[in-house]
Amino acid sequence: MSGASSGEVRDGSQREEQGISKLFRKTLVTVLVAGGTFLLTNVLNQKSSDMWQWTLSIILGSATLIVQYLVDFGERLEGIEENQKKRIRDMKDRLTAHHMEMLKVVDESFAKINAATELFSQVDRSVLRSDGVTRLARKYTQVGEQGSDIVKTFAQEEIGRLASLMESLSNGSADCPGENHEWLIDLTTCVKKTLYATSTDVDRDFWSSEPAKRYLAVQGDAIKKRRVEVRRLFLVDEPEDVTESLRKLCERQRRFGIDARIAVQSLLEPSAQVTPLNDFIIFDGELCYETEPDVRVVPAKTTLKMTREHVAERINRFNVLWEASEPTEPVQPAASG
């Protein structure tokens, strides 16, 4: 038997005992009143008939019983009224609490709607294209509704990464570990006027990779379709570093229409010598893509910098190096295709 059942049995027994006690008390009071009345009338008027004494005793006893029940009824009625008042107060409190919760939910919902409306209004007013943002929000919602757990988690990570990138770009600088070939290719796809780049021995192995083929292809498209001027300066320390493979690399890039030169720093004027020098690429004179090598002389970090002072310093550095070098071969027109 559970604790709840035991409690109900005890409560029922207590109520039954209380009911028996009240009935016994009412009966006892009634008998005492009736008996007392009979004795009193008998003492006061001994000449009266017994019928009159019994009648009076019964009437007073009945009246006493009725009065007791009326008192009991009044107490119960007061208890019921008090319980009703308590229930009404509780109901009002619950309704008030529910009303406040509903107001809070409605306020939060309207706040979210206002925030979303303001956000999309800012997107529409922006000079950037808004269709991509709308498509991203719609597809992200669909992934949340239909995707598996791992897909949802992956989508959240990608959205977070994209949001961090946008936040960094808005602050004028963004970075990521290693060499980000996707940034490099995407920026080349977006360039409209000029692409000035340096290349040190840190990224020599890059030119034989698959990303390098795509990078050269999009540079060729930029030169042919948008008339972008592409200059690349290969930097070496000493004349013996100018190898046959480096000359062939320059020749290959010239076939894409790239103005490629080799600069030997030890042969440059002291004012043109810059050490140490990281690989950097300047897009349209507005954004600088840089890689920083680690102790093993491999790209350990990629940085995008858009501050005017930094970009201007990189442009000046590139122009000094470029003017101090001489073209070894004429630039050939980009191959048609």
Score class of each variant (00 low, 15 high):
171 N>Y: 03
155 A>R: 06
242 V>K: 01
95 L>N: 07
215 Y>A: 08
182 E>D: 11
183 W>G: 08
295 V>F: 08
13 S>G: 03
170 S>T: 09
13 S>N: 05
57 S>Q: 07
85 K>R: 09
136 L>M: 15
106 V>L: 14
199 S>P: 08
179 E>V: 02
180 N>Y: 07
133 V>N: 07
149 D>T: 13
300 A>F: 10
297 V>E: 10
268 L>K: 04
118 E>I: 01
151 V>G: 06
218 V>R: 11
139 K>R: 15
149 D>N: 10
101 E>T: 10
166 M>R: 06
293 P>N: 04
61 G>L: 04
239 P>E: 12
6 S>A: 15
72 D>L: 02
14 Q>A: 15
227 R>W: 03
53 Q>C: 05
167 E>T: 12
84 Q>R: 12
117 T>L: 11
268 L>I: 03
154 F>N: 09
2 S>H: 10
334 A>N: 08
93 D>T: 13
66 I>H: 04
196 Y>G: 00
5 S>P: 00
68 Q>N: 09
7 G>P: 01
283 F>I: 10
144 G>T: 00
8 E>C: 06
10 R>P: 01
37 T>G: 06
81 E>C: 10
65 L>A: 15
66 I>N: 01
295 V>W: 05
56 L>Y: 04
206 F>Y: 15
318 F>V: 14
117 T>C: 01
41 T>F: 12
165 L>T: 13
283 F>D: 01
93 D>W: 06
98 H>M: 08
68 Q>V: 09
264 V>E: 04
247 R>D: 13
317 R>V: 14
140 Y>D: 02
61 G>I: 05
148 S>R: 09
125 R>Q: 06
85 K>V: 03
319 N>T: 13
18 Q>P: 00
216 L>K: 06
307 T>M: 03
5 S>K: 13
279 D>Y: 03
12 G>W: 05
71 V>I: 14
158 E>P: 00
191 V>L: 13
92 K>I: 14
118 E>S: 11
51 M>Q: 07
208 S>C: 01
